[in-house]
């Protein structure tokens, strides 16, 4: 089980992304990094760097959801 993101809105968006096959790796960058389900041929582009204290948590959650929606690999 990975650590939960300190911002609940971001954590909720991450759980939705993981349900869609995205992979969250904690302990990288400022908190973690997200990879889309695509492999070496991904064009989404990956990775998606996650802030631990984004300027606006609700907007960071929206950014995660848009990235998931745009991804061509799920």
């Amino acid at each position: 089980m990975r650590a939960k993101h300190p911002k609940k809105e971001v954590e909720a968006a991450l759980q939705e992304a993981e349900s869609a096959g995205f992979r969250v790796q904690t302990g990288r960058g400022h908190w973690g990094v997200m990879y889309c389900p695509g492999g070496e041929e991904d064009r989404c582009p990956a990775p998606f760097w996650l802030w631990s204290t984004p300027a606006n948590a609700a907007n960071h959650a929206k950014q995660i959801r848009r990235y998931v929606a745009r991804c061509q690999h799920h």
Partner: peptide, 10 residues
């Protein structure tokens, strides 16, 4: 930190 950073792309 009001932006999401992604990449690099291919």
């Amino acid at each position: 930190d009001d932006a999401a950073f992604m990449g690099p792309a291919l």
